[in-house]
């Protein structure tokens, strides 16, 4: 249990998707104009990461990794399908996003309409594929750890996008040099927020 909490907190603050690895920057920059929409997108990302990372964990450990197919038959003990990783992961993600979209539409139309176009966009958000690839690289011990990592990364991304949206709403009243307005200043603020988040580095959990 302690291990799970540690992974969760680590992936929120120390290995933050946006500030430490710059994943999901495209939607982070495009959708952070107002706090409202960024909360919607952030919630959707938490949701999708929390689902796809454990599923891809199972896929990795029971199908793709070297020798993973041996549960099927001892003849496959040597099979190594890891070269298919990318294509399988992205297929799972695209399918899951589609599925999540349909489920939400059926059971909670209000949430569906507030998320709007962001749901399908998530399929090409690199934070999602990145989450699965990092999960693969870090060799989590079991599916609970993978889930904790997925959810934690999602929450970290959520915090980042809500934070930048709040700052961007305020900065409209400041006198920013003209060529820096919009994109440029957002980059620099994100850099400064990244420096702030670095203060979490070195915390041992």
């Amino acid at each position: 249990m302690e291990e799970l909490v540690s992974i969760f907190v680590r992936s929120i603050f120390i290995d933050n998707m946006v500030f430490a690895y710059f994943l999901g920057m495209c939607s982070y920059l495009a959708v952070s104009r107002t706090v409202g929409t960024s909360i919607g997108l952030g919630a959707a990302v938490i949701f999708v990461l929390g689902i796809t990372v454990p599923i891809n964990y199972l896929l990795e450990n029971f199908i793709l990794a070297k020798g993973a197919l041996s549960w099927l038959s001892p003849r496959f003990a040597e099979a190594d399908l890891s070269f298919l990783t990318f294509i399988m992961f992205i297929a799972i993600i695209a399918a899951m996003v589609q599925l999540v979209e349909m489920i939400i539409e059926k059971f909670s139309p209000t949430l569906y309409s507030s998320l709007g176009i962001f749901l399908p966009l998530i399929a090409v958000n690199c934070a999602i594929l990145g989450g699965s690839l990092f999960m693969q690289e870090r060799n989590y011990a079991n599916i609970a750890e993978a889930t904790a990592f997925g959810l934690g990364s999602g929450v970290g991304w959520f915090l980042a996008i809500v934070g930048i949206a709040a700052i961007r709403e305020k900065i409209r009243y400041s006198n920013v040099p003209a060529p820096l307005r919009g994109l440029g200043i957002t980059f620099i603020i994100t850099g400064l927020m990244g420096i702030a988040f670095m203060s979490f580095m070195g915390i041992e959990l």
Partner: peptide, 19 residues
Amino acid sequence: ILPPMALITVGIIIWVHRY
């Protein structure tokens, strides 16, 4: 070398480009 400086470097490139 730290990650945040990449963001600030891109920010400056955008600044110069738009200037």
